[in-house]
Design a protein around this nucleic acid. Structure first.
Lengths: 216, 216
DNA sequence: CAATGTGAACTGGTTCACAGCC
DNA sequence: GGCTGTGAACCAGTTCACATTG
């Protein structure tokens, strides 16, 4: 179905955002939505919405708009989030355990099926979600057995690369990296980095340099 | 000092990454580094490194490279992270408390000086860091008193906008938003969004659509 | 000679503007 | 009439290639 064209990564990001707004619109009882309204809600340009969707097909009705339910289904299909994906969290510190219990993950079909750490006092413990923390030595076996498709790194920077190598060895080929370092992986493995302090640095730069307009 | 040119946001993001790599290089005893080496470490193009730095001045020595210590200082100055910034966390759930104790924040000069929630059973409690959770009713006064410059939203989507309005009322003009929704704010307020599930959706899309190359 | 600094070329992404349809 | 779908125009950001300099 993808019209063999190169699709900007930003388009995929926006599709995810559209999807969530559509859920809210559905909840609020809307049956149809125009590109203008959806764009406004997602803080983008209406033409952007239409172009993004245009990469994948014709989902709207001219003169009317998009069917809220139908468009949602299409987007979920495009993103491949119309099914469950199994996650394994590595690093069960404060952040790791917050992620395991993160409601937005389960609500969107991301299921934490395993948790690993290498601190002896953590291994074997049960976390509120019911999961038992395993040693990273067991990572490979468990990941394969439970068919984990995405590894989540929530360790300090110092161990991130080691963890990544473990995940690669277990043939996970998608990693969500919360550690503040760029891990090195082969081509076949896909990585997304979420780096809090980089975001803060960007924010601080902007605060410090943007023309400070007087408050309305 | 900025050569009155428009600086890409991506450049700022990379400066933050360069900075952290420089810290590691310094720790490892390097005195100078070439754009090629730094680029390799940060997984970008060498010309990109030079261009990014070029927006702000000439920091290198031709034929030699960049002084690791000096370049760090310059970047920290550009990013305005050569001082402490006060944060207030709103929403002390699992994620919020993980953020409060997040070591990378304190290590980089971001100091959590206040925490707010509106759950009656949380208000007044002391968190391991020593902070006492306050009611959001006290947000305005506390934020002003403690000179908080950045608000961090770690609440569910449903209350994010309300929290943002509270922060705006307290004249915070930078927000780091961890809730999975786009908050609406006036021009004068700067926002960075960190949305875990969007990142996962992007990762899933890629896993599902990228040409799956056989593993080496 | 080796590596920076930078205009010019290129690539990618966004916005416009309007044709096409309901 | 109103809103989608999309080629064309535009804009931004990255990479190249080379002149420049310690």
């Amino acid at each position: 179905m993808p019209k063999t064209a190169k699709i900007p990564k930003a388009t995929i990001t926006r599709l995810s955002i559209y999807d969530r707004q559509l859920e809210l619109l559905e909840f609020d009882g809307y049956r149809v939505v125009s590109s203008e309204k959806l764009a406004w809600l997602c803080q983008v340009n209406p033409a952007q919405v239409r172009k993004d969707l245009g990469y994948f097909g014709e989902f709207g009705i001219r003169g009317v708009g998009y069917d809220v339910i139908d468009l949602q289904a299409r987007i979920k299909e495009i993103l491949a989030i119309n099914r469950t994906w199994n996650l394994a969290i590595v690093g069960v510190g404060k952040l790791g355990s917050a992620l395991i219990q993160h409601h937005n993950f389960s609500a969107r079909g991301f299921k934490c099926v395993a948790a690993f750490d290498n601190a002896p006092d953590k291994i074997g413990k049960r976390i509120p979600s019911g999961l038992i923390i395993q040693s990273v030595d067991q990572l490979k076996d468990t990941v394969r057995e439970l068919e984990v498709e995405i590894g989540v790194i929530a360790t300090p920077a110092s161990t991130a690369q080691m963890v990544a190598d473990f995940l690669l060895d277990a043939e996970v080929n998608a990693i969500l990296n919360f550690s503040p370092t760029r891990i090195g992986v082969p081509e076949c493995c896909l990585v997304e980095n979420i780096d809090f302090t980089v975001m803060l640095d960007v924010l601080v730069y902007k605060v410090h340099h943007e023309p400070k307009e007087p408050r309305a």
